[in-house]
């Protein structure tokens, strides 16, 4: 008799847990509701043209190096952007220099004040531009995939629209001004062989 009540009690508990655990819907309704109507291209356009190009957080590379050497934590806080916790951060920098080599889309620049730096004009992938801009927040998007689509669209603009137009005009020996994203880690800060994901390259 006791067992019977125990089974009934177990059944009731399982039923309550089950009822509060899952819900059912028509898959087609869910798909329709989730259809994306967000224009990533337009969003990335506005981030690039109204945000990145006009950003006041873009710092001259020389100043960033000096700032990091003076007070690393303060420099990372003031000029760096990162999504979560960790030692690495992205920075939007600008500088000038002379093109001394071009190989496989990598422009080697003799930066007047900061030695040799490299600008990658071919492999503009990843989240460097999005994260360095500090203008796009993960919480603004429902899914990680959508958040990453912003990077994709932003990279597409720079890779397909901006960089090709600008690098057409430059050759080895030319002096250029440039801006772009770099990644630095607090644990190992190296300002040699900096690889820059460009946001802009201009013939001087």
């Amino acid at each position: 008799m006791k067992k019977k009540y125990l089974y009934i009690l177990a059944f009731v508990i399982i039923a309550i847990l089950g009822y509060n655990s899952v819900y059912f819907k028509k898959l087609s309704d869910v798909k329709n509701a989730n259809k994306e109507n967000f224009d990533f291209k337009a969003y990335a356009d506005s981030i690039y043209y109204k945000g990145i190009l006009k950003s006041k957080k873009t710092i001259a590379l020389t100043n960033l190096i000096a700032s990091v050497k003076t007070n690393q934590d303060e420099a990372f806080k003031k000029y760096g952007n990162r999504l979560g916790i960790g030692n690495s951060a992205y920075f939007m920098i600008k500088s000038t220099g002379k093109i001394i080599d071009i190989k496989d889309g990598i422009y080697t620049i003799a930066d007047e004040k900061n030695g040799v730096v490299y600008i990658d004009t071919k492999y503009i992938f990843g989240n460097a531009l999005r994260d360095a801009s500090g203008l796009v927040k993960l919480t603004d998007f429902k899914t990680n995939a959508q958040f990453n689509k912003v990077s994709e669209s932003l990279n597409d603009i720079v890779r397909n629209e901006v960089v090709p137009k600008e690098i057409k005009k430059v050759k080895i020996g030319d002096s250029i001004s440039f801006s772009g994203a770099i990644k630095l880690s607090k644990k190992q800060i190296l300002f040699t062989d900096l690889l820059i994901i460009p946001s802009q390259i201009k013939l001087q």
Binding site: N20, S21, V22, F24, V30
Partner: peptide, 10 residues
Amino acid sequence: DLFVGFSVLG
């Protein structure tokens, strides 16, 4: 044509 959603508890 079925979608099974889960609450936090589920």
